[in-house]
């Protein structure tokens, strides 16, 4: 019994660490790739670790109230918490965690928990830019959640389960990844992912020159550092979720890295060649093609 708990804890720690390290490297890689696309050398791939250490080593002489202090913690809950309910590998030793205790609808909600907490933290700083950034972010969320949910509903209808592990298993049983079984759902979800990752053209939330980085404009040092790490974990979470839902999961870490990184490249490269949408343009974008694909996906799941 006691051993179980230790094993569980160990699993949690290893998963989190894995997510953190992978996420950080992905972010480093994204900077590197962006630089290469722009014909630059770019920072080393471990640059984000250095940034993180530096940020954690910086003083935080001031805060604007306890909600600001807790804001990044909410973000972490959402990132680490979601990770706990997603099967990282198909049949891993440590990485099942609490997959059986949650399901995908629950995840949808847990994933916005962080944004709301973070928004509260940003709100308390009193910087108008933070609040403006938050409103943009939330508005954009209303946009991309719809195709994303449509894709998920399509999957649920197709596999008659809401449990992610079972969706995975269903894919294995049929031998077809759901991105081929229901391509429309995958397209809708992928287009929604552009908004979810907040690369351009959907990066108006923290537009540096206009909003002074928006919600985080008052947060330096440990706040920014914690947020960065949570972003890293969260990016990994989203990628693993996509891989699980649409690409049949991964049997080992190498496969996982290949699949997630491949997926990660899509919003990244799409963003590199795109300018920035205004918020309402972004929302309209999501209610255009992505939603149409979502509808087709649902109809496809129902009638096919």
């Amino acid at each position: 019994m006691m051993g179980d708990i230790w094993m569980t804890l160990l699993g949690v720690l290893v998963t989190t660490l894995l997510a953190f390290v992978t996420g950080m490297f992905y972010m480093g890689a994204s900077r590197k790739i962006t630089a290469r696309v722009q014909n630059r050398v770019g920072p080393p791939i471990y640059q984000n670790f250095l940034d993180l250490i530096k940020l954690q080593a910086k003083d935080t002489a001031i805060h604007h109230g306890w909600m600001q202090l807790l804001g990044p913690a909410f973000l972490m809950v959402s990132a680490v918490g979601s990770l706990m309910f997603i099967p990282v590998l198909n049949k891993g030793l440590f990485f099942e965690n609490f997959t059986a205790d949650g399901d995908i609808i629950f995840l949808l909600y847990l994933m916005v928990f962080g944004s709301l907490g973070m928004a509260l933290g940003a709100g308390q700083t009193g910087n108008p830019n933070s609040a403006i950034g938050v409103t943009r972010g939330l508005t954009q969320m209303v946009g991309f959640e719809i195709p994303w949910v449509m894709a998920i509903v399509a999957l649920i209808l197709q596999y008659h389960t809401t449990n992610i592990a079972e969706i995975l298993e269903a894919q294995h049983r049929s031998g077809v990844w759901s991105m081929f079984a229901n391509p429309y759902a995958f397209i809708a979800a992928l287009l929604a992912a552009f908004g979810m990752f907040r690369y351009s053209p959907f990066d108006i939330v923290g537009a540096p020159a206009e909003l002074a980085s928006g919600p985080v404009s008052e947060n330096g040092g440990k706040f920014l550092g914690t947020m960065m790490s949570s972003h890293a974990v969260f990016a990994f979470v989203k990628l693993v979720l996509y891989v699980d839902l649409f690409m049949g999961g991964a049997d080992n870490l190498v496969e996982l890295v290949i699949k997630t990184f491949g997926l990660y490249l899509i919003p990244l490269t799409y963003g590199m060649v795109n300018p920035r949408y205004r918020t309402e343009q972004a929302v309209r974008y999501f209610y255009g093609w992505p939603t149409l694909f979502g509808i087709i996906a649902i109809l496809y799941a129902v009638f096919y």
Binding site: A35, P43, Q47, K54, A209, G220
Partner: peptide, 17 residues
Amino acid sequence: DAERFGIRGAATPRQAD
């Protein structure tokens, strides 16, 4: 390409070195 030295812009003084 100053970024190869780890130099990058920060939007607000709170984040800057």
